[in-house]
């Protein structure tokens, strides 16, 4: 495991330990679920960001749709 991976997991655990117990105690189930989903997504994407490969981004899709329009307007 690289330092980056360890850092991401530790940071994720810290955020979880700071917020989750309070939500659990106050029985805010919906908030707790949302919190855990966001946190899991955050840890997963941070681990993905640590990979050496370039991952596809949502900008690729936007580019496919809107770049021709932009090029059309900017061409003269």
């Amino acid at each position: 495991m690289s330092w980056g991976t360890i850092g991401v997991l530790v940071l994720g655990a810290v955020i979880g330990l700071v917020e989750a117990p309070g939500l659990f105690r106050r029985k805010k189930t919906k908030e707790l679920w949302m919190f855990l989903v966001l946190l899991a997504a955050a840890i997963a994407s941070n681990l993905a960001a640590g990979l050496p490969e370039d991952l596809p981004t949502p900008l690729d899709a936007l580019k496919a749709v809107f770049e021709p329009i932009g090029k059309f307007v900017l061409r003269h």
């Binding site: 994720g12 955020i15 919190f35 966001l38 955050a42 960001a49 991952l55 949502p58």
Partner: peptide, 20 residues
Amino acid sequence: RPLVFPMAFLLTAFAQLIAP
């Protein structure tokens, strides 16, 4: 408010992943 920190953590990754 409880969602703020996981969201910031998520966006930290998004800001890196958004463009190669």
